[in-house]
Simulated scan of single mutants.
Amino acid sequence: MKPLEGVRILDLSRVLACPFATMLLAEMGADVIKVEQPGTGDETRSFEPFFDFGVSGYYLACNRAKRSITVDMRKEGGRQVIRDLAARADVVVENFPTGALKRRGLDYASLKAVNPRLVYLSCTGFGQTGPYAKRKGYDTVFQAMGGLMGLTGERGGGPVKPGLPVADLTSGLWVAIGLLAALRGRDATGQGAHVDFSMLDGQVALLTIAAARLFALGEVPPRLGTEHPGRVPTASFQCRDGRFLHITASDQHWAPLCTALGLHDLLEDAALSTNAGRLAQRDRVMAAMTAAMAALTRAEAVAALDVVDVPNGPVLALDEVVADPHVQARGCITEVPHGEARYPALRLPFRFDGFDDPVPRPAPPLGADTDGILSELGYDTARIAALREESAI
């Protein structure tokens, strides 16, 4: 069995952060019922890129292993469907603007009345309280306001966003963690809970060691490209063949590193034997390292550093990552069926001993499970037909 079998999640969310979270839980065994707007569904069903079988790769990347029901929550019949689903659910996840579901009688207080054991998570940009509670935002807004962009970029340059929607994806991880914690607490006490998650809060919480430098030293870490503000040498270096190699070295790696690269002058300087000394002479160390690495191909540099156990890794393009022999050996890339087609997908990074491993399963066509889910609630064919007549499903 999978570790979350028996957990039922009512997923009222859309786009990326929360759908990513509920997909993680679905592939670990939870029964995730994804509620979508009739006719259109989750907005990401229309987002690029599209596979050659006509389905959005964006949607498929975050909605595997779920069941889809179409419900129009603007109709009373649709709202009653949500109440009935919530009555049997362990979890409700929603990312509507603050107050939107309260106006429809589908907020935590309303659904708790039909299911006191319910764990209800609200994911918003800025939380349920505070001066920004009504503001709207997207991934890059939270990267900007949460400090990530301010820390990212080349030395002396402007802010740069990472190549992935980091605020959305890490928010998905926070949501999954919060739900699992609340479920554990619910199982211990018998009482449900409301989890108020703010995507801005999630980004601020990730500042960790950058914030530690501010709190301990009063320092706002400058943008340093691939360099580390508190460790030298840690950076990506361009090699003779134009490729880049990233090196992370602590004190125990300094002498082997200097020996491997022929940096004898640096090795003989006792002041550089500690990280504090190298921080004080960052420019000298980085200049010598840059020149030494430029004399080697990346393969030569990897071979020289691997022999002396200095941590290093080639900076790989995306196609190189998926073709990497270790990534392939670990089974990180798999194929998922979608009707008659199959498409490549990324597996979850867990391998269990004692439970079944999470294996990607297809994302649902829009509304594919509507009748089956309503039948599970005890709705007969006449009632389902009436809801369709009302356009509530």
Rank of each mutant, 00 (worst) to 15 (best):
V175D: 02
A17H: 01
G225V: 05
L60M: 10
T334L: 09
T124P: 01
L85Y: 02
K75R: 15
D168V: 05
D353R: 12
D72H: 11
L24S: 03
H228D: 15
A270I: 01
R388F: 06
Q281K: 13
G130R: 10
C62H: 03
K34E: 01
E43H: 10
A260E: 01
A61G: 14
L106D: 00
A30H: 01
A181R: 07
L173Q: 04
R223C: 06
R135F: 14
P233T: 00
G150H: 11
R88L: 14
G6M: 08
R67G: 03
M145R: 02
F237Q: 00
S46H: 14
S250M: 14
Y132W: 15
R347Y: 07
G77A: 13
P314Q: 14
R347Q: 14
G192L: 01
L4Y: 05
L180T: 12
S122R: 03
D187T: 06
V93I: 12
I393C: 09
G39M: 12
D353S: 15
L257E: 00
D309I: 02
P49L: 13
R135G: 00
L106H: 04
D139W: 04
A144Y: 08
Q37S: 09
R8N: 07
L318V: 15
A385V: 12
T226K: 00
L151I: 11
E376G: 11
G378N: 07
P49R: 11
G130S: 07
V307M: 07
H246A: 15
A329Y: 06
A392G: 08
Y120V: 01
G157H: 08
E300Y: 10
I177W: 13
P165V: 04
R135Y: 11
A144H: 05
E389N: 13
K66Q: 06
G354C: 14
G127K: 06
N63V: 01
L366A: 12
A323H: 10
F96E: 02
D42C: 12
G146Y: 00
G354M: 12
V114P: 01
R88C: 11
S375H: 11
A345Q: 08
V92E: 04
L4R: 00
T40G: 08
G242V: 07
M23L: 13
L183R: 03
Q143T: 02
P358N: 09
S250N: 11
V7M: 11
E36G: 01
W174V: 10
R186Y: 12
C239E: 03
A303M: 08
V302L: 04
P365F: 12
I177F: 15
K2T: 04
